[in-house]
Amino acid sequence: MNFEKAFGSMLRVRRVEEAIADRYAEQQMRCPVHLSIGQEAVAVGVCAALRKEDGVFSNHRAHAHYLAKGGDLKAMLAEIYGRENGCCRGVGGSMHMVDLAAGFLGAVPIVGATVPLAVGAAWAAKLRGENRVIAVFFGDGTFEEGVVHESINFAALHRLPILFVCENNLYACYSRIDDRQPDRPIHGVAAAQGCRTFTADGNDVQAVFDVSREAVAGLRSGQGPAFIECATYRWREHCGPNLDDNLGYRPQGELARWESVCPVERAAAFLRAMPDGAALIESAEKQIAAEIADAFAFALEGPLPNSADLPGYLYA
């Protein structure tokens, strides 16, 4: 993994989402947004182990996955602003990211809904003899959905090249994992279902990449499905731009502990210890800020979509 590039990718996701949060109050982004701030290392570490032709599916909290896989930033912001030049021409919004050219095959907000689709895409790759790996990102809550276990069963049965990535951030909206699951490791269930399983510190991009690389190598050599459980944490509210620790649903001090292991800051600290590190970070910040300004301008100047086009999207 190119560490500088991975850092730049994480920083870019962070700054993009902070910009979304900053501008959300302007009332121009009129759709739900689920920010990945605090979880960037999982998306970046996994996608660094994938090739462009590999596919990724995601969920309602998709910005980081989309950007890490190479999804177009301008089309993403234009979509959130509901414009014709958005990645779904305004039909989808933040919860429906897609960039086929980048191998980002789709994200939708029914929890667990894309897990079988990813398995199906991996099945197609195997049936068609393509050397292609599919990854799907989901949270700890999704692991409670029956469809996930149906999907894992089939993937193991047919030894499909699918990487299941569980971002365990401890919460489904405001419900803590202790209130939803027994005290046993999620990856242990996946192992019993026939996956090769891995765990990683989800706030350490190098650690995530290292297990992803090993998992993906196994997928390419036909070893059957792999499952990575990454421990990480969502800093902001489930849906929306704000902090919400004032609601009291998380133990006091928990957020602060996770902020102290910020994935972006940890990577930055590592870089700063290197000779050109500080300059490199500064340059990345500048470049990203310029790109974000450009992308927001692109979105805000985008043409408005036309509802007369909608019926044409329905059937081929």
């Binding site: 789709g106 079988p116 990813a118 199906g120 895409a121 099945w123 049936l127 469809v147 276990h149």
Partner: peptide
């Protein structure tokens, strides 16, 4: 449900 999703995934691939 899973198999329907898996077939959708295959269909879009």
């Amino acid at each position: 449900n899973g198999m329907t999703g898996i077939c959708i995934g295959a269909a879009i691939s």
